[in-house]
Amino acid sequence: GGVGMATGSYVPPKAVWLPAMKAKGLEISGTFARRGGGIHMDLSLTNNAMSIMTDFAIQFNRNSFGLAPAGPLQVLTPLAQNQTIDVSLPLNTNGPIMKMEPLNNLQVAVKNNIDVFYFSCQYPISLLFVEDGKMDRQVFLATWKDIPSENETQYQIKDFHLNSDAASTKLQGSNVFTVAKRTVDAQDLLYQSIKLTNGIWALAELRIQSITPNYMLALKCRAPEVSQYICQCYELLLRN
């Protein structure tokens, strides 16, 4: 963030999710953001058709974490030719659940006065990292021991130059909480916890060596299929 801006959860840049040529002139670009403990789908709608667009509505297919619109898509005035409007759609996680492949895939239907259009997009799973995800230290140690080593996944995150304090601060902005830090043989080991909106916890050990620019990330989770998506988020959060 710039001067005077609060640092917060990582927000990916908007991407084109629905090109105009596939939607009779409607172009949709968007991103996902976690703000003030809430989840938002931030959309830009552009009318590239020859007539005005009205009567917008949005619907999600069931998905892995129950993401659903928390209200209607608020497009209150007709969208004129060549006009773009920005809309922020609040989401909740109370929708129907179906495991998607990839896990963070979301299928969306958008309707207007012309037709119904469909597209898929993917959200960073850090969207689902909740604010009360700092695990008690005693519980962390017990959980770390209790989760079997088969449920541990290790990743190398290459070419980073942040020190452990900077990494810890950056990650905390997206609700990855450092529970403990230890230094052993010129390596900093950060023990971190993450809680997802569906109550799944992930425990992490981030190992930072001063002599190499590579981090080692070990993730322990009772639902190990989410680990690769959490690792992707570490990369994104640390690089942005």
């Binding site: 230290r137 230890r182 052993v184 050990e205 070990a218």
Partner: peptide, 20 residues
């Protein structure tokens, strides 16, 4: 005392992970 025990437990965990 619990705090000291937890500090010690994290140190042991880190030691053990860094030097398996």
């Amino acid at each position: 005392e619990l705090d000291d025990d937890l500090d010690e437990a994290f140190s042991r965990l880190a030691e053990c992970r860094a030097n398996p």
